[in-house]
Write a protein that binds this DNA or RNA. Structure first.
Length: 826
RNA sequence: GGGCAAGUGGUGGAAUGGCAUACACGCAGGACUUAAAAUCCUGUGACCGCAAGGUCGUGUGGGUUCGACUCCCACCUUGCCCACCA
């Protein structure tokens, strides 16, 4: 007999990984009449070895894919690499090599790691975003966006890392510092390429309602991110010139309490407003000071708000009152109109600022709990509901009603206009780095900005580039790249040297898997119509906003082009939890990582897969435990040994009804477990409870002996076969080997249909009834399933324990829950 | 400040209105062994009791119900995400 030990495991896993490749078991047919199932996991950045987070993510997805395959679906389960990005370039600088070389070496290593885990990918669809056959379609999509006015160039204040010499996305700035080099990030005015994601803000928000199979918190995060605010744009007038200053507020009900106005330091009105006045020096000094601050420093937690008076006044359109105009750091140019009306009594930020600078306050919403409260008594702004006071004709209205009426009145009187503002900003995609998709644009002194014609795609990354980490983007230093003839006039022109943010690449890769070799188009619309949307998407919560929002944006854009026919790319989303060790997230910097390779070397991929699925529900955090993984291995050993020792050919047919005793119990348990495991895998992927069910069945099998009886052996065999089939999506290598050992002829256990169960084989003859008195457990009785109620009552009341507890008491109620429980109320 | 999630044995976790702690880890005892490992068996929420059995017990306090880990209200704690968004 072969033991389930390190050597044997290695032999089996290698053997089946080889056979799966050789027989192309997981190659997805081009077309099929079967229902489709697109199972996708977030593709990795190829940094080298896979880590436990990858293992967990991809194991979960693999079980789903294999389960659906056995259920008869035509499954698409691809894998690729999100291969552009800064780490490759930094590695190139450090090791004096080329980013491509480093990246492809990492990909090779990663692919090897993934194969060792036994994942059921269709490897013929593998893709890497850094390959020109992929990124040319990035360029094509970009050109389409440019054509539709959705890709545009604008000058704006951006995050800039002086050390990495590139712009950064907001999410790459951690507490004012560059995520990679930890140097302070500064704001810089630059002309950059943007994608007009805000064009789809409404649809992106509205269609969140369709995503009822997404985790609610991801939906909530996207909602917050898109941030739709209803309010009023109010027209204040400069007292001096009569010019209009637009101010946005969501609280028009507080307009009568506005006691000053604040402009963002970057507001274009600031400079002309103070020019030549006695306030110019102080105001411009303040503007300069704020300009020096990094964005995250400026919004950092504390309540201190700084600002200066401009010496100017603006007129409140509702009461003609001139109120002072300030410039302060707590007002941001990027949101609203970059100017606010300040109502210190009903906005905490304004309250703090007003206290600090001794500005006037006026209560206009009465706190129903403290109606007499005066401005002097206020210790914080009152932001709750109440009735309008000191609000002219609107006095006495509940403020929610006041909001509506004041807004309508202002619009009618031309004092403002009802407006919607979004938090969502357009997406800055320019990066001043080499290792990304070149933005396919040309600057001609005569013709201006000219797109590269489609026929000239791809704009390839030049090879003749040195990586020194100095002097800006390597692309701008490549003469052969930069110098180009203008496609319009043919004269000397210059290429755009910025590359695209890598989130562009990952915003549509799920479509490229559908026809990965197509060299005529980004993807085949007909095949996309079959495969889209992705039925199950699995990945980390860290992508809840960025990648998942960008992908939704791209899908909507591609639908508008008529290339896809779905509004949303991902029907179901599962965000798997983190892998922890000693209560902390595994990370290299903390030094608490566990290398999947080392675990595979000792226990094999099957044990690792089983443990990671068993230790916690997929959405929850998973605490790594070196002892517990031993338990997973022991369980697989038991299954392995059981087949080898006790499985004997026996083909006798039988029916559940005709079985007796423990054989009948085993067959019933088998049917029950099939039902439960199928449900657990279908509804919410409860792998942990599915596994515990198989363990229960296995415990029963271990206690059962065929005693040389062919019928009993047949029942036993059926139970063992069921265990192997139910486990096969989870621990595929061992199950393939056992399936073969048991004499089955299929070329792979993954081609065997998922086991079914019979309802009648779940029925019991007797049930255990729990007997409670006043809700407290007092006794248990075994009774026939269909016992009449009066007979049950007699049996219960004659029970010794029950009689003792009922002594001297009156039975008021007798509640029966069929086949479960009796509760006697006394 | 806002949003979301979660609080159950020594540990990971199970139970979504009906036996709280399934399944597993750990621990203890036993069998096998010269011994150990492996394997197998038994036990394992707390307290009282020789036992039968009883009392308490799912973050805290209330409520609904014949019956609450589960539903409702309030609070506490932890985790994650967002945040001068006007």
């Amino acid at each position: 007999m072969l033991p389930y030990n390190t050597n044997e495991i290695a032999r089996i896993e290698k053997k089946w990984q080889g056979l799966w490749d050789e027989r192309q078991i997981f190659k997805t047919p081009e077309d099929s009449r079967r229902p489709k199932f697109y199972c996708l996991e977030m593709f990795p950045y190829p940094s080298g070895k896979i880590h436990m987070g990858h293992v967990r993510n991809y194991t979960i997805a693999d079980v789903v894919a294999r389960f659906k395959l056995m259920q008869g679906f035509n499954v698409l389960h691809p894998m690729g690499y999100d291969a552009f990005g800064q780490p490759a370039e930094n590695a190139a600088i450090k090791h004096k090599t080329h980013p491509a070389q480093w990246t492809y070496a990492c990909i090779d290593q990663m692919r090897g790691n993934l194969k060792r885990m036994g994942f059921s990918y269709d490897w013929s669809r593998e893709l890497a975003t850094c390959h020109k056959d992929y990124y040319r379609w990035n360029q094509w999509i970009f050109l389409k966006m440019f054509e539709k006015g959705l890709a545009y160039k604008k000058s704006s204040s951006v995050n800039w890392c002086p050390s990495c010499e590139t712009t950064l996305a907001n999410e790459e700035v951690i507490q004012g510092q560059c995520w990679r080099c930890k140097n302070d990030v500064v704001q810089k005015d630059l002309e950059q390429w943007y994608l007009k994601i805000t064009h789809y803000a409404g649809a992106l928000l509205e269609d969140l309602k369709k995503l009822d199979n997404w985790p609610s918190r991801v939906v909530a995060m996207q909602e917050n991110w898109i941030g739709k605010s209803y309010g009023v744009e109010i027209y204040f007038k400069w007292q001096k010139t009569g010019e209009i200053l637009r101010v946005f507020t969501t609280r028009p009900d507080t307009i009568f309490g506005a006691t000053y106005v604040v402009l963002a330091p970057e507001h274009p009105f600031v400079k002309p407003l103070v020019a030549g006045t006695g306030y110019e020096q102080a105001v411009m000094d303040f503007v300069a000071k704020v300009g020096q601050m990094s964005k995250s420093m400026r919004v950092s937690g504390d309540d201190r708000k700084e600002g200066v008076f401009t010496g100017q006044y603006a007129v409140n359109p509702v009461n003609g009152e001139p109120i002072p105009v300030w410039v302060a750091d707590y007002v941001l140019m990027e949101y609203g109109t970059g100017a606010i009306m300040a109502v210190p009594t009903h906005d905490q930020r304004d309250f703090l600022f007003a206290k600090e600078h001794c500005l006037p306050m006026r209560i206009v919403i009465q706190d129903p709990v403290r109606p007499e409260m005066s401005v002097e008594e206020m210790t914080e702004a009152y932001e709750g509901e109440g009735r309008q006071v000191r609000s002219g004709a609107f006095d006495g209205l509940p403020n929610e009603e006041g909001k509506k009426q004041i807004a309508r009145w202002m619009e009618a009187e031309g004092k403002g206009k009802i407006a919607v503002y979004w938090r969502l900003r357009d997406w800055l995609i320019s990066r001043q780095r080499y290792w990304g998709t070149p933005i396919p644009m040309i600057y001609c002194p005569a013709c201006g900005v000219v797109p590269v014609p489609e026929k000239d795609l791809p704009v390839e990354l030049p090879e003749d580039v040195r990586f020194t980490g100095e002097g800006g983007s390597p692309l701008s230093q490549s003469d052969s790249f930069v110098r180009v003839a203008c496609p319009a006039c043919g004269k000397d022109a210059r290429r755009e040297t910025d590359t695209m943010a890598t989130f562009f690449d990952s915003s549509w890769y799920y479509l490229r898997y559908i026809s990965p070799c197509d060299d005529k188009q980004a993807f085949h619309p007909g095949q996309a119509a079959y495969w889209m949307p992705v039925d199950q998407y699995i990945g980390g919560i860290e992508h809840a906003i960025l990648h998942l929002l960008y992908s939704r944006f791209f899908t909507k854009f591609l639908k508008d082009l008529g290339l896809v026919n779905v509004d949303e790319p991902f029907t179901r989303l599962l965000t798997q939890g983190m892998v922890l060790k000693d209560g902390e997230v595994m990370s290299k910097s903390k030094g608490n990582t566990v290398d999947p390779d080392a675990v595979i070397a000792k226990y094999g991929a099957d044990t690792l897969r089983l443990f990671i699925l068993f230790a916690a529900p997929p959405e929850d955090q998973l605490e790594w435990n070196d002892n517990a993984i031993d338990g997973s291995w022991k369980f697989l050993s038991r299954v392995w040994n059981c087949v080898q020792q006790k499985y004997r050919p026996a083909d006798q047919a039988y029916a559940y009804e005709n079985l007796t005793g423990d054989a009948k119990d085993l067959e019933r348990e088998r049917n029950f477990v099939v039902k439960k495991v199928t449900e657990d895998l279908s509804n919410g992927f409860k792998f942990n409870t599915a596994i515990s069910q198989v363990m229960i069945l296995m415990n029963r099998i271990d206690k059962f002996s065929a005693d040389g009886d062919p019928l009993r052996q047949a029942v036993f065999n059926q139970a063992v076969r069921t265990v192997v089939l139910l486990l096969s999506p989870l621990t595929p290598h061992m199950c393939e080997e056992l399936w073969q050992m048991m004499g089955n002829r299929e070329e792979s256990v993954s081609r065997v249909p998922w086991p079914g169960y019979k309802e009648n084989a779940l029925e019991k003859d007797v049930v255990l009834m729990v007997v409670q008195i006043n809700g407290k457990l007092r006794s248990k009785l075994e009774v026939p399933v269909n016992i009449p109620e009066n007979e049950l009552r007699d049996r219960v009341l004659s029970d010794e324990n029950i009689q003792r507890h009922l002594e001297g008491k009156q039975v008021k109620k007798f509640i029966v829950v069929p086949q479960k429980l009796v509760n006697i109320v006394v």
